[in-house]
Design a binder for these strands. Structure first.
Lengths: 130, 130
DNA sequence: AAATATATACGAAGCATTTCGTAAATGCAA
DNA sequence: TTGCATTTACGAAATGCTTCGTATATATTT
């Protein structure tokens, strides 16, 4: 039985989704190896997490071969969007621009990226010049 | 005994910090009343959370009167910064500008806010025109 | 002072998350 | 086919978070 709404991924599940989004369909071993570049985590731990993600509907898998091949079942952009909204709400009282200011102030961004953002802003101002 | 590093607030603790940041020093009842405008939550639940926040070093209190008065012990900006970094890392692979694009694209921002952001960007470009 | 209202203290249940140990299955190699 | 290496399945411990019930303390009112 599948859940009506796919639940929000936990932090560990997000780590795995990152790998699946970037690498495409992967085995448990592949995912676990990548995760271990950042932090130590047991193989069966990753396996269990991915099995849970399957149950939750966050991933699908091809179990025809010996090694099951997992794939993300949620889109990166929409997942980012949903979690971003919650983040902005609980930490920035819903003010996206406040978050943007913080993000730009404390991380480096190349001038190309900055230009990209600027043109996005100009585009938005044209669209709704309220 | 105090923790060496103040731990990251949980989601519930962030709700309370929001209130303390906005309202300043407050009693449990004041916080609980405000929280109940958004969702139902029992008085002793809020009390317990605030006591835990005291233990964790997220809040301090004045217990001289009958009603204890709690106060945020972590700064809003630095807390935002720390959590934002983690958020960007786990959901946007460390790319702040990606997050900014998503944030601007999916939330409304007034043209005043957009102008503010634009001038921030221009300022940044001047400072490090790499 | 007794009764009442309101506050804090504390323990613990319920649940989710993370982690891993152990067993069973599977494929490959000798 | 027998054994070895690898994989999956499953259970469950350990921890953390949220919630609230009950007991106790404190103040106010009558």
């Amino acid at each position: 039985m599948e859940p009506l709404h796919t639940p929000s991924p936990t932090e560990s599940e997000l780590e795995i989704l990152q790998v699946l989004w970037q690498q495409g369909p992967s085995t448990v071993r592949q995912v676990n190896d990548l995760l271990n570049r950042r932090r130590e985590i047991g193989y069966t731990t990753t396996l269990k997490l991915m099995q849970i993600m399957l149950e939750k509907g966050l991933a699908t898998r091809d179990a025809s071969g010996k090694m099951h091949i997992y794939q993300a079942a949620v889109e990166e952009a929409s997942t980012q969007q949903r979690l971003l909204k919650r983040f902005v709400d609980t930490l920035f009282r819903g003010s996206a621009s406040q978050l943007v200011m913080q993000a730009l102030g404390n991380h480096e961004a190349s001038s190309e990226e900055l230009d990209e953002i600027k043109s996005l802003i100009e585009q938005m101002e044209k669209q709704q010049p309220k």
